[in-house]
Design a binder for these strands. Structure first.
Ligand SMILES: [Mn+2]
Ligand SMILES: [Mn+2]
Ligand SMILES: [Zn+2]
Ligand SMILES: [Zn+2]
Lengths: 141, 141
DNA sequence: ATAGAAATGAGAATCTTGATCATCTGAGCG
DNA sequence: CGCTCAGATGATCAAGATTCTCATTTCTAT
């Protein structure tokens, strides 16, 4: 597995960390709350505390293994850091999350920041709307 | 004053609501936390509870009088809804907030959402960076 | 001025996340 | 393989932000 990433980050390879990585890698939902990960651990029969989940996720974030997003609710969601940066679209009805990357938007952000005398370091962009997924409760029958 | 806005929104014209509107209108800082508004009320000698501040701000938001932003900290900030939509740049060092509007970004957001089968309703965009304001503690002397 | 509906204030409650600290575990070494 | 101890864990407590509860007060309409 990716225990090498843990070692590279200077983190001991422990059972909780491996299990949490596993869930982040294998869950069909790419964006998970700490609580959701905790519940999956319980369902797998692992006796791992919620505090550990939060702690480990924060460490993973600091190590660049995951990124933390605030999509809308009161809970942060975490996703495995694969390859590149992207932003998100969230369905107001069903909560489905789609990812996108738009170079035009990225470039304009840099330009806007420069015009205002800012050295841009980061940004957060989330679009909210109604999706047309057949499972979305909002979609007309 | 703008008590007419309150009536239009179906809200009774009460002292707490008027005072809170007043602060939102007159504060030199356009983006205020509920706590900041609460403190200004106390400083003005008004005996208004923090719960009322939160309650009223939520009602103002529902009425379209203010909008609520999550800029970075754990506290939401509120700003009076004047004229048009805009997005924000926040300085990582001094917390200064600048506003901007970029039609190119707005258009690309609509296009991206459409490509993904979303009817876009809203969006949140915040840029983070280091500002060059002379008062910013980060700026080299 | 009066009455009733709506709003307020004090404090409790909730929710999410981080801190404490005694106990446990994994990586390195003999 | 078994020992040692820095580092990690888990149970619990704590903190911060926001909402809820409910008795009391204040608007608005008569
Ligand atoms: Mn993502
Ligand atoms: Mn603004
Ligand atoms: Zn949907
Ligand atoms: Zn600054």
């Amino acid at each position: 597995m990716e225990t090498s990433n843990l070692k590279k980050a200077g983190l001991k390879v422990t059972l909780p960390r491996m299990k949490i990585l596993e869930i982040l890698e294998n869950s069909e939902t790419r964006h998970l709350t700490a609580e959701a990960i905790y519940r999956e651990l319980l369902d797998s029969g692992e006796e791992i505390g919620l505090a550990t989940v939060y702690r480990v996720l924060t460490q993973f974030e600091a190590a660049g293994l995951v990124c933390r997003l605030h999509l809308e609710g009161n809970q942060a969601v975490f996703e495995l850091e694969r390859g590149g940066h992207h932003d998100h679209i969230v369905c107001n009805q069903c909560g489905r999350v789609e990812e996108f990357f738009d170079e035009t938007i990225e470039r304009r952000q840099r330009e806007v920041a420069q015009h205002h005398g800012f050295a841009i370091k980061d940004h957060a962009l989330v679009l909210y709307g109604d999706c047309t997924d057949s499972a979305c409760p909002h979609r007309p029958a």
